[in-house]
Simulated scan of single mutants.
Amino acid sequence: MTQEKPQVRPVLKRNGFTFKQFFVAHDRCAMKVGTDAILLGAWAPVAGARRVLDIGCGSGLIALMLAQRTPDAVTIDAVELDVAAAQQAQENAAQSPWSSRIHVYQQDIAAFAESSDQRYSLIVSNPPYYPPGVACATPERDAARSTTTLDHASLLRYAARLLDEEGFFCVVLPEAPGQTMVALAQDAGWHLRFRIDVAEYAHRPPHRVLLGFSPSAGETLQERMAIRNQDTHYSEAWCSLTRDFYLFM
């Protein structure tokens, strides 16, 4: 008799999630731990990165994932506008194994970009994507999900100011906003270097897209990935991407 594989997920505990090497509390964050952030944190190209920036870090999950994936010499900066979320990200970072190299700033990214003299080899963002006027449950969630506080053209402009010439700017978005961002980025002089279309199930169309832009021209790597197979079990691609983070994998 064939045993069904257990569901693989981080463990919910104390208003947060336990991963293999760290815990993320998110009870004071409008946006909770979710698949989009895990996708970006597990996928973003860290090879050769020297300094990394997470724009709109929320609970700090992506910053923590990138810290786990990079050598001790790599510094991770994270910027978050919401006061409560930034405080929680600071606490999550302080309680992690990488407290000395994750720095969380409670600041508007516009002010951060204007005042910073740093240049980053990797910038990541799980950005807001709903247009203004789409109702959310709370004002905090509205700010986190709506482009009212950070539209994509502005995000691209701030990233361009902070990224070094050979670096990558990576985002995760729903398919339609992702298509729009590709057009915006190319109009602004960016080059699309990575694209992964992500489907929930192998037999369904993609619903999310991972995008990697660079100021430098080069080959574009395009792939497709399903999170689950048709039998609803997690796919090998998803397991390979996330097994360093999920418990019981």
Rank of each mutant, 00 (worst) to 15 (best):
E4P: 02
E4S: 14
P6C: 11
Q7L: 14
V8L: 14
L12T: 12
R14K: 14
R14L: 13
G16T: 01
F17N: 06
F17D: 03
T18L: 15
K20G: 00
H26K: 11
D27A: 12
C29S: 13
M31E: 08
T35K: 01
D36H: 10
L39E: 03
A42W: 01
A42C: 14
V46L: 04
R50A: 11
R51I: 00
R51A: 00
V52Q: 11
L53C: 01
D54F: 06
I55P: 06
I55W: 02
I55D: 08
I55G: 04
I55Q: 02
G60K: 03
M65K: 01
Q68R: 06
D72W: 04
A73D: 14
V74L: 05
V74W: 12
V74S: 05
V74T: 02
T75K: 14
D77Q: 12
V79D: 03
E80N: 04
D82P: 06
V83G: 10
V83H: 15
V83T: 15
A84T: 10
A86I: 08
A86L: 05
Q87D: 13
Q88S: 08
A93I: 09
A93P: 04
A94Y: 00
S99C: 08
S100T: 10
I102R: 00
H103F: 06
Y105G: 07
Q106T: 12
Q107T: 13
D108P: 06
A110E: 08
E114S: 09
S115W: 13
S121F: 04
I123P: 09
S125W: 00
N126C: 07
N126S: 11
P128G: 01
G133I: 10
V134M: 03
V134P: 06
A135I: 04
T138A: 04
D142R: 11
D142S: 12
A143M: 08
R145M: 11
S146W: 07
T148V: 09
L150K: 05
L150I: 09
D151F: 00
D151C: 12
S154I: 02
R157N: 11
Y158Q: 07
A159H: 01
A160P: 10
A160H: 08
L162T: 05
F169Y: 08
V171N: 04
A176S: 13
P177L: 02
A183L: 10
L184K: 12
A185P: 03
A185W: 02
D187R: 15
W190K: 03
F194K: 13
I196C: 13
D197E: 15
A199L: 07
E200W: 02
A202R: 13
P205G: 11
P206D: 13
H207V: 15
V209G: 03
L210T: 03
G212S: 08
G212I: 02
S214W: 05
S214K: 05
S216D: 11
A217Y: 03
A217Q: 10
A217W: 09
G218D: 04
L221G: 07
Q222N: 09
M225H: 05
Q230R: 15
Y234L: 13
S235C: 08
S235G: 09
S235W: 07
R243A: 05
D244T: 06
D244K: 12
D244A: 14
F248G: 07
